[in-house]
Design a protein around this nucleic acid. Structure first.
Lengths: 238, 238
DNA sequence: CGGGACATTGATTAAGATCAATTTAAGTGG
DNA sequence: CCACTTAAATTGATCTTAATCAATGTCCCG
């Protein structure tokens, strides 16, 4: 079934560009909307939605699943800049030059709404709200990366990992899942490449937090035993 | 004298939102433009253009001088996310929520063109080019911070500092100054807070690069003796 | 049930933080 | 204009954290 603003759980948040686009296409400016197809794209785990250097054609709103956004340099070093989850807008890295600067790779089978960028900007001319929403979405990313810079700069490894887990926990809660128990969709290596540490260090800190009864970790299965402690650790004390 | 698109060296780059705004105000869509006042704001060294929590009213295009953008957390830790120089657009961090998330502090006496944000978005409705330029400006920041994340994650202290100096050198060249000799407007502490290291480490690495005949550093006066070596060091090898 | 990717653990080393003491230079007021 | 004050920067000695090197364990999937 195709998704309409009524049936899309993301549209309810009021921050869904796909829903905006759908409304605009249907010509209505207020609910109720006639059913309106939003094309979706599905992506199997490990496949990439787009690659560095590809021409920006679409933005994508992640409907289900999760993704890693990776930048690499010629010498092979890589940085996972973020792990977008449900609701996230993907492809913004292509707006500066018209060419994506990241690889967007599915961490699990995922579904995204396809938002043709040219249509979005064209419609934004007549729709100040949509234009504003796009601006905000881009600006939000900027602010996110600023905060991540601070995490990498000011925190030690344990604090970084705790902060990362709290962030996932909060996103899970926001999506209606348990904030206490979830499955990590990414490898230890991905986490390491996200937080600027080595895979062995990630592993050791998981073990350490397990021993301290803050977490229960078995491979990708994670449960947070002591959320307060985790929050305390993950909130820069320095 | 007020600045017009003709007299503003920034407008020549074709990436000046202030010039766009000036053109729009004057009602002309192509050169030549009637003279049109763009209000400027001057800022003394050490003073802040805006502070975390202030309501976003204006964006600012840095006409002359330099600035540090700082985020802090309750416990007093701070991160210098960037050092905007001539041409940079300031205030973008306020777009997400309508409230600035950084402190913007002048590193020297500086001059900026004032761009009322509401006017910018209002005019963007009828001016696709301006809208596009705003989007790009925001997206550019995002990409900048992604690359900085990689620098912090993947490089050791020497590589980070080298990369930082190369970046300044390139910006100086782009502004028509010598890329080989310039004065650092920021303290060692600012650099440390930007690159995620301690002030003593910054100092030691300056000394080390001096001994290796890559740099000549005397306090804030810097000259690059061996640009190739500096580039080699500052380009992530890992 | 076997292969391979992923993860854990241990021992050692190296990079950078920390603690502490000077040195230098830029303002500032007499 | 000079002495004084103070912020900024440098340098040294030591300690801590995380990287590195190496081996082993475990689980998922075909």
């Amino acid at each position: 079934m195709n998704i309409t603003p009524e049936t899309c759980r993301l549209a309810a948040t009021g921050a869904c560009l796909a829903a905006d686009l759908c409304r605009a296409r249907s010509g209505a400016s207020h609910a109720p909307f006639p059913p309106c197809a939003i094309p979706r794209r599905t992506l199997r785990r490990g496949n990439s939605l787009y690659r560095t250097g590809d021409t920006l054609v679409n933005l994508y709103q992640l409907y289900a699943g999760s993704v890693k956004l990776r930048i690499s340099n010629p010498s092979g070093a890589e940085q996972i800049v973020s792990f977008p989850m449900a609701g996230a807008l993907l492809g913004l890295d292509g707006i500066e030059t018209g060419t994506y600067t990241c690889d967007a790779i599915a961490l699990e089978d995922s579904v995204m709404c396809v938002i043709p960028f040219s249509e979005l900007t064209a419609r934004s001319c007549n729709d100040a709200k949509m234009a504003r929403r796009l601006n905000r979405a881009i600006a939000q990313e900027t602010n996110y990366y600023m905060r991540l810079l601070m995490v990498l700069s000011c925190m030690n490894s344990e604090e970084r990992l705790a902060s990362f887990l709290m962030e996932i926990s909060e996103k899970m809660a926001a999506s209606g899942y348990s904030p206490r128990q979830f499955i990590l969709k990414m490898t230890r290596e991905d986490i390491a490449h996200h937080l600027g540490m080595k895979i062995e260090t990630v592993s050791r800190i998981f073990t350490r937090l397990q021993i301290a009864h803050v977490l229960d970790v078995r491979r990708r299965h994670l449960s947070i035993r002591d959320p307060d402690a985790l929050r305390r650790i993950g909130t820069c004390q320095a």
